[in-house]
Design a protein around this nucleic acid. Structure first.
Lengths: 367, 367
DNA sequence: TTGTACGCGTTATCAA
DNA sequence: TTGATAACGCGTACAA
């Protein structure tokens, strides 16, 4: 029988700690710590020795211990209503990429559009000792005490997309107003004069702003607002179809264009128009909002407004980093407003067909 | 001048710890610990007192400290090639939901299809002292030493979707073979006999298996494999179109159906067929793979195979939890194979048009 | 049932 | 430039 080796290869070896390195080299742990953290008070020779041994023994720093000691972890908590679906997935992509570049890791939580869950998420993240929290509110949130706790603890808090209606918070949002304005202007420039609008739930800032942009664009052409042309909708596919049917049935001969505050409802409208034999864009021009993937696949392809999802994630992280560095982050309040981008496609072009034209580059504005 | 209150509301208060509770109640920290962790050795009266005070003072447990003490955190690390895009976003959704239910938080990392980044991700997660790692390999990964470290440390490791070709790992995968088989059988049952196939890169197990399923389904109808009918493709939209053109130009009169190993290429084929005036499904039936969102939007809607993204995430977490509970997790190796689901839509129906028919419920198999 | 004392791995403060 | 020591907040073996 072969003698058992002292370190069987299959055994689970405990991780190498700073104490192990110290013992091996016959120096104090302080020295090890200094060598590893690039401290100034250390001889270059010892430093090299330590680093070499660390590599050799495969030393893994224990972030938990460091965070406990420093009272400051390298974790960012993110709360979204849900993660699947293009918008939030892409925002999270932007967040993770930017955070990673700055040496932070990202913990994901989903509120599932539920306030109670959102509250729980906040508790969990605080317990995990995150360095900051980025959050897009659940649809049901209308009470904000759980975020007060975060502020009280002095932890940077950044809202994005779905934000608190207040200027005493840090937030990154899209300029929905301008999106609505741009797309309506575009329809007007195509010659449309009776432009309908599918408006989303008006208690949400994003839909309110898109509607206002629509109204102001009309006003810029000296067209009066006509409430008949505005259909309030929950933005689903089915609702898009019924809303379209409603506009077609108007006594004054319907509409010559529709701006839907959401792509899905626009798709519903498109399907209805096609089933009724109405030509898009010749008889009715169509535009949506969100630049969903499918807008480039429909026939005709759908004009839409891009929400700059990835930039939104990056901006949220940038704002978080500023708060971390600023002394009195609890009192600094900044809003970052991203400019939307209009993607003009076939569904709104009554003139020469151009594909995937993008309006001028727009830049980020903060105030 | 009003006297300054001792606790200004705007100040950032330090979190309440167990020591604070102990001091306030005049008991030891042990008692506090026991009360909070539902230990048996504690009087119901003191327990209630502690819990009440904890609630009143807004005590927040420090998970970091607990994790450090126990050498076991409540964090699961997840590594994906990228998070945006339907597949991984939905898998991550499944993972987060299941993990949260089991009291775990999820740290997300993206490898960006890069081995070096993947290695870094592993290091980061180990440093964060995660309880386990769930990973879908980057496309470029062909060296696995970085995962050996994880095993050596005795940390549960679960692969999903893109896995290591080996049976000595824990993995959750889709039965791609069966997906290819099912969809091809369906086309055969529709009466098609010259069925083309867009095959993906054959060094990836998923595409190899889909192709084999296709071949075996043909064989079950005693149809010989015809290499002319198989086009090797990178599965892009453009490639789908050119591949389709190639099949149409075959000397023997083209094909009467195509099974594409990816939806995007199927879409490319569909667009080409329509532009050439070829009727789908009457002249050429079409089916894809992945059940992308747009398959329900094209005209005609695309038949496709669903990959059970969410179930995959759930299964990965379940497997992780089993490994945590099992004593010798380092030696337990399990594979979970999910059954795909065929979504039959207009593009493959040469008989009566049925919409969104689903084949029989399929269940999870493990071996 | 309750309390004492120590250690998890790291960093900060002080003294040498 | 280095080292000894305390502390971060929590859990647990042991003693009371």
């Amino acid at each position: 029988m072969a003698p058992r080796s002292k370190k069987p290869v299959d055994a689970t070896s405990s991780p190498v700690s700073m104490a192990d390195l110290a013992r091996e080299l016959g120096v104090s742990m302080t020295t090890i710590s200094r060598a590893l953290s690039d401290h100034h008070s250390i001889g270059p020779a010892t430093k090299q020795k330590v680093l070499k041994l660390a590599k050799k023994l495969n030393y893994q720093p224990n972030h938990l211990a460091a965070a406990l000691r420093k009272g400051q972890s390298k974790l960012i908590g993110v709360i979204v209503p849900y993660i699947e679906g293009r918008f939030f997935a892409t925002v999270v992509h932007g967040i993770e990429t930017a955070a990673s570049k700055a040496g932070f890791n990202v913990i994901i939580c989903q509120s599932s559009e539920d306030v109670a869950q959102e509250r729980k998420n906040v508790e969990t993240l605080l317990s995990a000792q995150v360095a900051g929290i980025l959050v897009s509110l659940s649809r049901a949130t209308n009470d904000f005490r759980h975020f007060e706790k975060v502020r009280k603890r002095g932890i940077p808090l950044v809202f994005f997309d779905r934000v608190l209606e207040s200027d005493t918070v840090n937030a990154v949002v899209l300029n929905d107003y301008d999106g609505g304005y741009q797309v309506t202007r575009h329809l007007l420039e195509q010659g449309c004069r009776r432009i309908g609008h599918f408006a989303g739930p008006q208690h949400l800032n994003i839909y309110r702003n898109r509607r206002q942009g629509y109204l102001d664009a009309l006003a810029s052409y000296e067209l009066p607002a006509d409430e008949q042309l505005i259909v309030y909708s929950d933005m689903t596919l089915e609702n898009g179809a019924t809303s379209m049917r409603q506009l077609l049935a108007l006594p004054d001969g319907g509409v010559d264009a529709v701006f839907s505050a959401g792509d899905t409802a626009a798709l519903g409208a498109l399907q209805l128009l096609k089933s009724q034999g109405v030509l898009v864009p010749q008889q009715v021009a169509l535009a949506g909002f969100s630049n969903e993937t499918f807008t480039a696949i429909t026939e005709p392809m759908l004009t839409s407004v891009d929400q700059r999802c990835e930039e939104m994630g990056q901006a949220a992280v940038r704002l978080f980093l500023e708060l971390v560095e600023s002394q009195d982050s609890a009192f600094l309040q900044r809003q970052v407003i991203l400019q939307p981008r209009l993607f003009i496609r076939e569904s709104s072009l009554q003139g020469t067909p151009v594909i995937d034209t993008i309006t001028e580059q727009s830049s980020e504005v903060s105030c």
